[in-house]
Each structure stands twice: as C-alpha cells, then as structure tokens.
Design a protein around this nucleic acid. Sequence first.
RNA 1: GGGCGUUUAGCUCAGCUGGGAGAGCGCUACCCUUACAAGGUAGAUGUCGGGGGUUCGAUCCCCUCAACGCCCACCA
Length: 888
Amino acid sequence: MTMTTELSTTYSPKESESKWYKIWEKGNYFKPKKGKANKPFCIIVPPPNVTGKLHAGHALDVTTQDALIRFKRMKGYETLFLPGLDHAGISTQSVVEKMVWEQEKKTRRDFTREEFLKKIWAWKEEYGNTILDQQKAMGASCDWDYLTFTLDPIPNQAVKKFFVDMYNEKLIYQSDYIVNWDPALQSAVSDAEVEHIEVQGAFYHIKYQIKGSSEHLEVATTRPETLFGDTAVAVNPNDERYKHLIGKIAVIPLCNREVPIIGDEHVDLEKGTGCLKVTPGHDFNDFEIGKRHKLPIINILNLDGTLNNCTMEFSGLSCKEARKKIAKKCDEIGILIDTKNHVHPVGHGERSGVIIEPMISKQWFVNVKEMSRVAVEAVEKGDTTFYPKEWENTYFSWLRDPKDWCVSRQLWWGHQIPVFYCKECLHQWASEQNETECSKCKSENIYQDPDVLDTWFSSGLWPMSTLGWPNEAAMKEKKFDTFFPNSVLITGFDIIFFWVARMMMMSLKTQQQVPFKDVYIHAIVRDKLGRKMSKSLGNGIDPFDMIEQYGTDAFRFSLASGAGYNRGINLDPERIGGFRNFINKVWNAYRFIQPHLNSGQATLNNLAELDHHERWILAELNTTAKAMNEALEIYRYDEASSAVYSFVYDKYCSWFIELSKNILNGDDSKTKAKRVSVLKFVFRKMLALLHPITPFITEELWSHLKEQNEDLLITQDYPEYESQFVFKDDQDKMNKFIEVITSIRNLRASVNIKPKDEVNVELFSDNHELIQYYRANLINFKELARVRELKAGSKELNRPNKSIVNITTHTEIFVPLEGVIDLKDQIARLEKELSKTEIDYKKYEAKMNNANFMKNAPENVRAEVVQSEKELKEKIKSLKENIAQFKE
RNA sequence: GGGCGUUUAGCUCAGCUGGGAGAGCGCUACCCUUACAAGGUAGAUGUCGGGGGUUCGAUCCCCUCAACGCCCACCA
C-alpha cells in the first residue's frame, strides 16, 4: 500500500529548522568522530564580542565555516567546529559604563574595581549568549562543549604563561614611550587601533624670535596649542635659508622659553615653511628627533586630553578651544603671520572615535621583531596559505615593518597584567601565580600591575588556548594534538593585522608551528548598492529578519553563492527571495516523487539496464559532484552553489522529472520501478550535495527518503565523482534533444500555437544515428513539445510544403501547418539566423585559412575549429536552401 | 605619500594555465498544463572602462590613461 501524506505546495522552514537543530545537537552529531577519511578537520569560530548581535558578516562566517565543516564531516573527517566568545575589553567595558551612567548616574570610578567588574560579569551573563543562539539559528554545527570565553581560566593561564615567558626573555618590556593615548577611554591603545581620518585644519604660521638677534623664524604648525611643549626648533641642515641659525637660541612665544635651534634631516624643505617646532611629548616624529638630540620632554596634557598647568592661562581648556585662543592671542600680539587651510590626516580612536593624543606614558610593549620575521617566513614557505592569495600582501605589509606592540590598557575588563611590584624593595617580577609576597624580600607589601592586556593579546593565543594549552590535562581532554594546527581560519580582511598576524606570531613562538594551514579571507557584506552596512545609513540587513522572512537555508544559499575570491558581497534581500524559491523548488521536486517512492529502491543494482535519460541524469549528477568537491576544497562556495543550483533546476527538475512523467503515469511496472529508483537515487545524492549549504530542508527531506536502518543525512557520505557514471554519448545526445525540443517550442510560440494544441513535426538530418535517436524518442517529443506525429528522416527526402521551419546543426525542424503561413515572417526569421550563423562561420573560416593558426594552434583547438567550421557550413547550406524554397 | 583592488547584459556578479562571453534577479509575450504561479514556455539586451602593445588569436598577458573603492602612513 502506498502511503501518501498531504504536503503543502510551499516549504515552511520554521518547523524543520528548530526540529532538526535540536535533534542534531541532542544526538551528539556535532561531536568529532573518527570517520573513513581518518583525518582531523578543525575550524575555530572567530569569537564574536559578548556585546554583539549577529550581523551579516557573522552570518557569512557561520555559513562558510559550517558548510565546510559539514562537507568534511560527510567526507569522513573527524571534524571539530569550535565556538567561543570574546570579552572585547574596550567595547564591553564602555557599554556597561554607559548603562551604569544611564541607570545610576555613576562612573566606574564611583565603584571599586571588584564592584564594577561584578557588574560587567552580570551583564555578560545576561546578554553574552544571545549571539550563540543566533549562530545556532544559522545552523552552526559546533561542538558546544568546547565553548570557550576569552576570560575563562585556561585562556587566562595561556595569557599568563605567554606573558611571563616573554617577560623573562625580555621580549616584553615596560617603557616610558610615546603612545597613542585615547583621552575618552583614558587608556593607551595600539597602532592598529588608530584610524587616520582626513580633517580640515589649518597651518598657523607663527613667528619665533631668535635670541640676541632681530631675525625670527616662521614656524608652520597645525597645533599651536602644543607650543608650550616645544623644546627645540628644527630646520634641515641643508637648508640654505636657515642653516646659519643652527646652534642659536629661539624664544617660544607666549611662555618665552628659550630652546635650541637644531638641524635634523627629518625636516622637509618643501613642507610648511621648512621650519619645525619640536614637541617631543606630543608628536611621534618629534619624539624621535628629541631622542636624537637629547631634548627634554614636556607633557602639557592631562589624561583627559585637556591642557595641564604648564600652559598658563590656557590650562583646563580642550586642545580645540586652546588652539583657537592661542591663535587669537598670537594674532593680537602680532606674531601670527598667516593661517592657511590645510587638510591632513588625524588619528582617531577606533572604538571611541575621539582624536588620539600622542603622549608619553609608561606602558608594556611586546618586541615583535623576531616573531614577525618568523611569521612572514611561514607564509613565504607555504606553511600557511591564504585564499585568495593576494591577501598575503596585506599580511606581509604589516609584518615586514613591525612596530613594538603596546599591550597595556588602563581598563578593568580584561586579563590583568601578571606583573607584581614590591613596595618595600621596589622589586618587579612577572608570575603566573597569584603572588602574596615579594619573591625577593618576602615582604607582603606588594601589588599587581593594575592594567589589563589588549584584547588581541588573548585572541592571539586563541587557537591554542581553546584546545587546552597550556594546561596538559585540558590539552589531552580537548585533543590538542589532533586538532592543532587548525585546518583553516575563515575571517574578514579587516582583521588580518589585528588577529591573523598575531595568531601566527604567537603560535609560531609558543608551538613552533603555524596555527592553521589555510586562511580563507571572505568578502565584506555590504548592502545592495555596495555600501557598508551602518547604523547611521540604516541599511543594515539583520540576519534574523532574513531567516524569518526567507528561511535559514535560503539565506545561507545566498551568502554561499556570493562567497568566492571577491572582496564584497552586495546583499540584496530580493536575491534571497530568489533562493527561497529555489529551496521551494527542491521541496516540490520531492512532492513530485513522493507518491511513487515505495515502488523504487535507493540503490541502483544494474547499470546496464538503465535507459538513455537515466544514464544522462547520472552523468550530470556525477559532473556536479565533481564540480562541488573541487570548488569546496578551495573555498569557492560560489561555484559550488551555482553547480548544484543548475543541476537541481535545469537538469533534474526541468528535464528529468518532465521526462519521467509518462513513465510514472504508464502501465509498465518494471520500467516504472526502474525510473523511480533512479529518481530516488539521484534525489538522495542531490540532498547530500546540497546539505552543507542548506542543511535544514535536506535533512527534512532525507528523513522521508532514507531507509529504516540509515542514519541522519548529516552523517551520510558526500557524493564523489565516480567513473562508472561517465556517459558522454548520452550527454551529447540529450543536448541535441534539448536543442530540438526548444526549437519546436520556439516555432510554436512564433505562430501563437496554443500550449494545448498538438502539432506534427518532421525532422530532417544528415546524421543517421540522430535520425534513429529521434525516432526512438517519439513519446518524449509528444510529452515535452505536444507533438502529435513525428517523422524523422534523411535530408535526401522531400520537405513538406506548408511549414514553419527552424534549422539547427545537423537537423532541420519542420512543422507543417494547415492555415496561412506568413512567408515574409518565416524568411525574415531564417535570414536572421543565417546572418548570425555566417558571422560565426567567417571567424572559423578565417582561422582555417590562416596558415599561422594551423601551424601554431594546439591540436585540440584546431580540431574544434575544423569541426565547428564543418557544422556551420552544413547549417548555412540548409538555411540557404530553405530560404530559396520559400522565396520561390 | 605608499600599496591593493574594481571597471563584463538594466541590476548584482562568474569567466580556471589566452581559442571567440555566462548565471541569478529584473524586463517582454503567452500560459493557473495533473511537483511547484515562490511556477511553466519562449524571447530581447553586451564596441568585456578608453588607447596602445605582445600573439596566428586578448575579457584574460604587458604598457598607459580614466573613473570608483579599500587598506596603510608620524596631526610640521
């Protein structure tokens, strides 16, 4: 008895999505298991910020990573997809500070450190997991038992170990150095966290008097307010204009401090006036000049960026206000010579958005010189490969010119720096333990460095710490040796410096090997007009809306179809709608075969029994499997998607299902059973091919198609290329069949024959094999082009009189008509075809007549040209003969 | 200032080591045909940014110009 369930004509994603995710997760399907490939495969999720909400970029992360994980899992790899969360020091602390201010009108300084950290932890517990739920909604097949937070004990242990080892090697050092100071955060930040933005400013030309002389220097500066910090004036030693002044004394306006005039090559003769005020405390270049000339350093700023008490009546003002007032005052006393508009780049805090002030401050630095050299070498040697390869340049450009990494942050939320100070003997030491007494004098009067480490310090150790390093028991439990190095890192290009480079350095330093074999840099998701998604533009696409509207599978397919070696994906919700339709197509293909399922088998026992169309669809399936395997191996999700899309739509649905209808509706039960088996066999393979990209609908349909003893689709074998399914001749013939059918349909449409009305068709060919083939396919012409009677014969035969005609290579298609035929129309159509064909033909003819081509072109190209030339010639002959006939 | 990238059908983009240009969406016409109107059938559209070169042959390689975008860079 055939059991049929009523199925809706449209697929509704919601139910199957939540259903299958739970079944997979509860059934431990996401856990690493040894499979037939007997190799590990591990991807670690770039940990999203706990402040975060899933955005389109994360959705792309999940899609590309999960598709690969599912693909490899099906291929029998021991797969681990490792999830995590990042404490994101600055962002998270800021969010909580803002919240506390709104709720209690208090700043963090109104609390003790412990009290405030408690608030952040509470916040993290409450909101931190939403993004994980969203990843689950995207279908991420992570082993959630591996979930790691960057502040968990093991990452903390990793951070301490790395820091202490580096400290003891003197590769981490403390120094009074000029750093990027973020006045809003009141913390140092690293170079990578500074964004240079072009702003409209001005060059102020100010007169600096020379002591004991009537001469003066004209200094050009964009920052007159820093003149209180000037400790020299510099000119280029080769500058004829000023050379004679070197060694003399200049007097700083307003404060009348006397400073030397020095010569330094750094000064550009062309820029400004060629005369530079040197402020070593607040400018990176000046700091270097100061070092070279042993100049004193004067700090003129408070930690919040306002001017301090070295600045006379200007103290307490912001730089911006002070600049205005100082310029005004200089003007009043007649030393402001000129003000010129000037557009120049100014560093802004990546997180805070405020202007970064270069300031001298005692901070911790990592000496990255050697580590970056090793990291560059590893990629040059190919230990790690970037896809697409061009991104290696970006990676190199950062690491080949390394600056020491400022890692201390004056924040509370993060890994506290494991350095201790003794108040008694002033001893300083680093330790992985929570120290209670001085390691030297045993005094208990000690304290730990209050600062925390840059968030990227713990992120850099992520591939190791998530797998248990440096805790040996944890490493064993988490199978460090199996999953490290990871197989591939998938992320966006915006964090190549921040993250990829640091992981490379820190892994090579601690493990003497690279952290991952491949790095796939995916595109940045933009809106449909190619603009960055941003709150201010309001053009953000919320993944949850997309899932709600179109279903996760459709959303994943859209992202996959846009993910190749490109830099941007312009995501248009309408496109997702298109893929939703595709998903629905799969659903309906299932609805078509569903009533017949019981009469067929899931396996094909005897390939020799298969008919032409069955061999054809298997060959097409095989081609698709090959293309998908190859594409996914090299992160060409776009190619994989388009291959499977075209197979499902253009091969299976448009032709194979159509060609199966007469068999399924017929009486020949043996033929029918065979056809159902093939439909089922191919459908099952098709689901497997699709599964990595669209896991939910495929698992849903698999549950209807699987045998009782079979497990879920997520564990089934991924279809591979198989030589037994190569049927080249059937593919060629089928292409011919499709061409002729299309041609008949075209003729019907050209004279408005109703879809229901039948026509007679006569085919004339110069190819005997084709004639036989057409004759054998009578029933299919009937089905697909509403043909009543089909004659196929040699071109030697007479053509029917009143007909409409199309000409293809090797075949003339005649549809005899009863009524009046518009000869003009007919001739026009054929002549259009003729001229097109002739243009084509001439190209080939020219080649054949080109001795150089015949001499130089490779054999296969030549053969192709010869073949095409022959076929086009034949077609032209047909066209001409028929046109002549109609003109008579 | 340095570097990278992009420019192909109305829109978004493929086009692998050079052999004669493709997809999706959109558009037009006709169809509710017994899997699917979230559908079917047929159809239109390209000086492959401009110019030059290499080659038997260039969307693809080289040079050059142009437009757009991104990244890096010490605020004279």
